[in-house]
């Protein structure tokens, strides 16, 4: 697993891989991601046949089942456009684990070429589009939670920060033990609910302690986990996907 070192020029068009969690729970975050890219003059295509990257099955040991789903995804993005993914976790699966999943199969070579086209959204905005944002929102204090896969697998924590730092009315804070997992872990939260609960409780406490108004994250798994717990505790801290947050802060028409 290696991090990307060079980046391509701005392309004319890209594919967007929406992820299943966004599809079901946070579609506005997906749309915001698409709009951010389009605003930079890049055409965005959302293939209707996409579903899920297959990570839940992969991480549960059901590799044949994951491979069937992964095969179907690769078929959805036939041209060689970059594929932008608004999630560090799904991007990590597509970029790093597809070649492992297809190791020793006829599709291995195709999976390598496919994985090479995967960009996490904030990485794409910063490194490829070199986006410049102007903040039209009111002053706000934002706590950033970078998902473990965004931080470690994709190495895009810096891109998350860089985007938020461009917003002049945003005070960016990060919680104590910012590098610690929130306890979601996909099926982990189902298999080990008590441990997961202990983790999200501490994460939420640290986030609340920052005194931030908004929690921003690039991954809906973490958001669902943390805001779910914040809601249960009736905290006022609200969560937002980084794409939604950036779009709302920079789109004069909607703010």
């Amino acid at each position: 697993m290696s991090l990307r070192t060079g980046f391509p020029e701005q392309p004319a068009r890209v594919y967007f891989f929406g992820t299943c969690l966004i599809d079901l729970l946070y579609p506005e975050a997906g749309l915001a991601g698409i709009q951010l890219i389009r605003r930079e003059g890049v055409e965005v295509i959302f293939p209707q046949n996409q579903t899920c990257c297959g990570q839940p099955a992969w991480n549960s040991g059901y590799r044949d089942e994951a491979r069937a789903v992964a095969s179907a995804q690769m078929a959805c993005f036939p041209r060689d456009y970059p594929i932008v993914v608004p999630s560090g976790s799904c991007a990590g699966m597509l970029r790093h684990h597809y070649p492992e999943l297809f190791q020793g199969t006829p599709q291995h070579k195709a999976s390598l070429a496919f994985s090479d086209r995967i960009f996490e959204l904030t990485e794409f905005l910063v490194q490829v589009l070199k986006i410049s944002l102007s903040d039209v929102g009111k002053p706000v204090k934002v706590a950033l939670h970078v998902s473990c896969s965004a931080r470690r697998e994709m190495g895009v924590a810096g891109d998350h920060q860089a985007l938020l730092r461009q917003l002049k009315n945003v005070e960016l804070v990060e919680p104590r033990r910012r590098e610690e997992c929130c306890g979601f872990g996909g099926t982990f939260a189902v298999k080990h609910p008590e441990i997961s609960a202990a983790m999200v409780e501490e994460k939420a406490t640290e986030l609340v302690a920052t005194g931030a108004d908004t929690l921003v994250s690039g991954d809906c798994g973490c958001l669902m986990n943390i805001t779910g717990h914040l809601g249960y505790r009736k905290e006022t801290l609200q969560g937002s996907h980084i794409a939604s947050f950036l779009w709302e802060r920079t789109n004069a028409a909607e703010s």
Binding site: P27, V190, Y232
Partner: peptide, 25 residues
């Protein structure tokens, strides 16, 4: 167990698939 310490996630009224279709993407 999920909702023992969390509120339940709410499904969106329209999926991203549907929104993208409406926008012609």
């Amino acid at each position: 167990a999920w909702t023992r310490v969390r509120s339940a996630p709410r499904l969106a009224a329209k999926s991203l698939h549907k929104l993208a279709r409406e926008k012609g993407l």
